[in-house]
Nucleic acid binder design. Sequence first.
DNA 1: ACAAAAGTGTTTGGGATACACCCATGC
DNA 2: GCATGGGTGTATCCCAAACACTTTTGT
Lengths: 325, 325
Amino acid sequence: MSIDNHTEVYTYKYPHPAVTTDCVVFGFDGKELMVLLIERGLEPYKGMWAFPGGFIRMNETAEECARRELREETGLELDKVRELGTFSGVNRDPRERVISIAFYSLARHSTVRGGDDAVKAKWWAIDDIPQLAFDHDYILRQAMKRIRQDIHFEPVGFDLLDEEFTIAELQRLYESILGVHFDRRNFYRKMLQTGVLEEVEEEEMPRPIYYGKQKEMKRMDVDELFGDTMGETQSPIIDSICASEASSSHEGNAITREERIKIINKLLNTDSLEAVTCDSAPDTMYEKAATAERSRSVGRKGKLYRFNEEKYNQMKEDDNFRLEF
Amino acid sequence: MSIDNHTEVYTYKYPHPAVTTDCVVFGFDGKELMVLLIERGLEPYKGMWAFPGGFIRMNETAEECARRELREETGLELDKVRELGTFSGVNRDPRERVISIAFYSLARHSTVRGGDDAVKAKWWAIDDIPQLAFDHDYILRQAMKRIRQDIHFEPVGFDLLDEEFTIAELQRLYESILGVHFDRRNFYRKMLQTGVLEEVEEEEMPRPIYYGKQKEMKRMDVDELFGDTMGETQSPIIDSICASEASSSHEGNAITREERIKIINKLLNTDSLEAVTCDSAPDTMYEKAATAERSRSVGRKGKLYRFNEEKYNQMKEDDNFRLEF
DNA sequence: ACAAAAGTGTTTGGGATACACCCATGC
DNA sequence: GCATGGGTGTATCCCAAACACTTTTGT
């Protein structure tokens, strides 16, 4: 929406504040709690980081506004956004009186891509947040308080992890949100006793074929790992890595073998490994790809569980759901 | 604030919603949870009941607005108002797009007088609420949900009772809010174990001199009960009854003996007793006044306690305050 | 083979529940 | 003296914390 070519004006008998929504999106990378921020492209606070959000339209509720802005600025489609509170300080925006209705939400870390338009969206570790625009640092503190409270009674954790997860992953998440340490064994029992976890049958989550010992991987054919010209591989994990990385450049087109190699190289280079090509050093490539696969599977030892939402809703009705630690 | 003689207009490039606050005030009459409502004097929904509230001004925060409107419309000065949430349905007000920021608060039932201006304010039992204006019935349901949750972790009850209260009163309050029954003895222990109650020394809370046996009261001089011409009595309870009842008509003036008699008569007549005057039937009057005093003291048997706010804040810091039932 | 982490079982102390009992007050 | 309700004590049960042990997995 451009701020120019506006001939219309809107007049009122009494002054009206502007109303915006802001959305604090939490994620979890396996170690730390993360927050999704966007870099502001316009004044005020141009170049600073802020929560996704924007002005409410006259035909949408606050929640609809929050979801729309989130989609427009970060590409995220989230079904659950929870209201955090309103921030109505008189001078919180230099342009005019702006009241912000803040929401918070939870996203699987892996599903986030950059924003669709010029806006840059990025995950930040909770302990390493930059200076924020407006009063967003205050809003963040409130959001942190809130998530720490909600996690005791609501299934906060499950929206942050992949659909299938191990209990150890869940524990790491709880520990990093609450900043405490739990006894592993008691955590197991308590979580299972809640009854909201259902075990995933082994066959439902087949391990990717490259999962396993590194030695075996070296013996695989290069085509199997990096795919044929149609871009299909037999490794779902490498597949999903490439798909999400490539999504910003092509829209739904198949990924060629060469592109796939470039992507993997680029990704691996972030770990400060030297670049390789498929032809020059297939063995090295295998190794790195295997490392990439395995690093995605870190902590992925053990039984997988899934959140049973029906059962949770049922228990919530009867008001006997508690997650005390 | 009148809606006429406005020459000024306020123009904006983009449409702005109007923003109001609404305040759900809970009280407790010893038996039931009550809600404070005002009768609307203007369209829309003229004549219907609604929560106190109004449009936000450009130089006040939402919370300040809520407190101001509460004061203007009901005479209540409350220090703690807690945010409940925003209600942003597109068509919730027929005039224009109005977003409401709702608060909820707790008031000692006895301290409420009628509104200062034409607005009628009245307590309603929670089970007997009339049809409400706007979406206020929905807001009320949300407020009920919220208070039921908050009562477990926050000292909700203490703001609803008098400063000094018995544990039995506190239990009745908890039971009526949560709609359950507790074992009296376990409730005692749990409440005392929290450590936030401090015992009131007997001499700190002298019983009013008319408290006690009805026979004794009959022997008292009429001047003692209804005061001299300056309007002073020796019964603090009758004193406070008269002061609060008279407040809407005179502003701070002393209450004469005759007015006091009228007030007491009027109050007693609500119990469908015949009117009496001081001269005609002083004995009857004594009796009725004594009944009024005693009815105020119902349940006032037993040790009195007081909420220790410092200790609560201290425990809240350490995050080890729980009131589970 | 060894280390590390997953998964399961056992003990135990403290708090919640369900009672019994005594005392104070009012009629 | 009897009824009502306030105040305190006690036995039982269950759950949460602490810890031991076996199995699995990766190198």
